[in-house]
Amino acid sequence: MATDAALRRLLRLHRTEIAVAVDSAFPLLHALADHDVVPEDKFQETLHLKEKEGCPQAFHALLSWLLTQDSTAILDFWRVLFKDYNLERYGRLQPILDSFPKDVDLSQPRKGRKPPAVPKALVPPPRLPTKRKASEEARAAAPAALTPRGTASPGSQLKAKPPKKPESSAEQQRLPLGNGIQTMSASVQRAVAMSSGDVPGARGAVEGILIQQVFESGGSKKCIQVGGEFYTPSKFEDSGSGKNKARSSSGPKPLVRAKGAQGAAPGGGEARLGQQGSVPAPLALPSDPQLHQKNEDECAVCRDGGELICCDGCPRAFHLACLSPPLREIPSGTWRCSSCLQATVQEVQPRAEEPRPQEPPVETPLPPGLRSAGEEVRGPPGEPLAGMDTTLVYKHLPAPPSAAPLPGLDSSALHPLLCVGPEGQQNLAPGARCGVCGDGTDVLRCTHCAAAFHWRCHFPAGTSRPGTGLRCRSCSGDVTPAPVEGVLAPSPARLAPGPAKDDTASHEPALH
């Protein structure tokens, strides 16, 4: 009773807030009518008042009428009001819900409408889902798969039609296919003929059939049928067999079959498995989609049935006599038709004709302190090069084509190399640097090759510096006499390219 009084008091307290929050009759008014909170006449009256005075006034009048009803109607109103779709449509209802007392429970059932309790003993237990329907569909599909699609060729003596089998029958139906081979029951999904010589313990000319048996419980189990008994694959494991010639990621696949039913060829011909030897223990289905393919039931050349050999690369099948050149017997292992072999060759040939990528240039590290003349020119003028003790990398590039010797140069053309002071002394051009340390401070000019250098860098042994005729380390061993002091540049003949010694390969005349 306390809860009923509290709900009535809360409705009177929030009546105006609810009326202002509800700006549309749908969905709240319609939901109240659906849950029998508002009768039909009051529903029509509220809609009429909404058209006349507006939605807030109409709902305020409806809530005032609701306060005169019993506690069950008020409880049902609060339940409908706080439904998710009403809270989404009328956003101003959320503060009312947040301020609702926590001790007021809106989930209690309506009085007088409590459903009768059902004894637990009368409640049926839930049924577990079964796979009976899938099993029945598999039974119905198996006879259809064994139905012949056409008439065999005159040369083929193997013609068999499976008798119709009602689904209610649980007995196995067997077809006489000759040579002791028996087909599987209607619940078998796949059958492959297997030679009895590969099964340990088999006697006589009995041949087993590799099947997948579907049981009534819905589970499946792969086994071997020899005669009327089934054997699990673990009985046929043979770890010492060295003649297993397995197909790549293979499961067994029928390579020879008669049109209309699988079996042995007439005249004692023995149908073979995809792999010879003992049956392997793992009978998992292969991951290669080509091995799941269903080959055609007629020859791809003459479009006739009979004894066919199936290609492992495509769905086509052929007569042995229709092949070019014809085959006398079934080859062992994987067999592919000429079209598949030709496609494989065409895929391999473009790969062989692809040009080989060019090898990157060989990189040879230079000892610290040495650099090529090109690196000396590329440096920024007026700045010493940083990191001189790091190992430089010199790339061996292809030799350029031989060019004509340089033409003779006048001494005026070499004027930018040297600057003559007032006393006739050779001065260095701006930006000249030593080729060893890279520093341009207090550098000297070689009178023979006009290269800038430090005496301490080229002659670290402490050799005394002569007063005139300074030469760098590369030119100090040259027998050519030094030019007379005061000459602007060496003779043009000295600039012609010539053979250089091994220790002077990195010091070429550089223009500054």
Score class of each variant (00 low, 15 high):
197 G>S: 12
28 L>V: 02
240 G>S: 11
178 G>W: 06
181 I>K: 02
29 L>D: 00
15 R>K: 00
149 R>D: 12
271 A>S: 11
163 P>S: 14
212 Q>A: 01
228 G>L: 00
199 V>L: 10
253 K>I: 09
42 K>Q: 05
158 L>D: 07
50 K>Y: 00
135 S>I: 13
120 K>D: 06
99 S>W: 00
273 L>R: 06
6 A>Y: 15
133 K>F: 01
151 T>Y: 14
105 D>E: 08
7 L>G: 01
181 I>Q: 00
55 C>D: 04
193 A>P: 04
42 K>L: 02
189 Q>P: 05
56 P>E: 00
162 P>G: 11
148 P>I: 15
267 G>P: 08
205 A>K: 12
4 D>L: 02
117 A>E: 10
213 Q>V: 00
141 A>R: 10
164 K>L: 12
207 E>R: 02
34 D>M: 00
43 F>E: 00
157 Q>E: 13
157 Q>S: 11
195 S>N: 06
206 V>N: 05
66 L>Y: 06
116 P>E: 08
15 R>W: 02
142 A>K: 03
141 A>L: 14
182 Q>V: 01
268 G>W: 15
21 A>V: 03
74 I>M: 02
114 K>I: 10
222 K>A: 09
249 S>L: 06
135 S>P: 02
201 G>D: 04
69 Q>S: 01
149 R>M: 04
21 A>M: 04
71 S>K: 13
134 A>I: 14
210 L>Y: 08
270 E>M: 13
103 D>M: 00
81 L>E: 03
66 L>T: 01
138 A>D: 06
19 A>V: 01
254 P>L: 10
197 G>N: 13
9 R>S: 14
261 A>L: 07
218 G>L: 10
151 T>L: 08
172 Q>H: 15
179 N>Y: 12
236 F>V: 08
219 G>A: 12
231 Y>N: 07
263 G>K: 13
4 D>R: 01
49 L>C: 01
206 V>R: 04
126 P>A: 05
155 G>V: 05
140 A>G: 11
196 S>W: 04
254 P>N: 01
81 L>A: 01
251 G>F: 13
168 S>D: 03
266 P>E: 04
158 L>G: 14
113 R>G: 07
246 A>K: 05
255 L>I: 09
108 Q>I: 00
217 S>I: 05
244 N>K: 01
202 A>G: 07
112 G>S: 08
127 R>F: 08
50 K>E: 06
254 P>Y: 13
13 L>A: 03
78 W>H: 03
45 E>D: 03
54 G>D: 07
218 G>Q: 00
41 D>P: 02
272 R>T: 09
195 S>A: 14
31 A>H: 00
80 V>S: 01
112 G>D: 12
170 A>C: 13
97 L>W: 00
231 Y>I: 06
95 P>W: 05
76 D>W: 05
182 Q>F: 00
233 P>K: 03
223 C>M: 09
53 E>R: 01
143 P>E: 15
10 L>K: 00
192 V>R: 06
93 L>A: 02
256 V>P: 08
47 L>F: 05
10 L>G: 01
193 A>R: 09
202 A>E: 07
54 G>S: 00
114 K>P: 02
92 R>Q: 04
228 G>E: 06
185 S>F: 04
208 G>K: 08
178 G>T: 11
25 A>V: 10
89 R>M: 00
185 S>K: 10
188 V>D: 07
51 E>K: 04
7 L>Q: 04
266 P>S: 07
196 S>A: 05
33 A>N: 15
88 E>G: 01
237 E>P: 06
19 A>T: 01
180 G>C: 13
33 A>K: 00
117 A>M: 08
25 A>G: 04
232 T>D: 13
70 D>V: 01
3 T>P: 01
250 S>E: 04
167 E>V: 12
231 Y>P: 05
53 E>W: 13
190 R>W: 02
217 S>G: 11
7 L>P: 02
172 Q>N: 06
136 E>V: 06
230 F>K: 04
3 T>G: 01
235 K>S: 08
30 H>S: 02
68 T>L: 06
103 D>V: 03
2 A>E: 12
198 D>P: 05
233 P>C: 12
104 V>F: 12
81 L>Y: 02
185 S>D: 04
117 A>L: 12
45 E>T: 01
15 R>A: 01
135 S>T: 15
92 R>V: 01
199 V>R: 06
12 R>V: 04
49 L>A: 03
223 C>E: 07
157 Q>A: 12
129 P>M: 05
104 V>E: 07
33 A>E: 08
27 P>W: 09
71 S>E: 12
152 A>D: 06
85 Y>S: 02
173 Q>P: 11
22 V>H: 02
30 H>L: 02
165 K>H: 12
235 K>E: 04
147 T>G: 07
166 P>I: 13
147 T>L: 11
184 M>I: 10
113 R>H: 11
211 I>Y: 10
13 L>Q: 03
201 G>I: 13
112 G>H: 09
247 R>T: 08
226 V>K: 02
85 Y>H: 00
198 D>S: 13
186 A>C: 13
145 A>V: 06
71 S>Q: 15
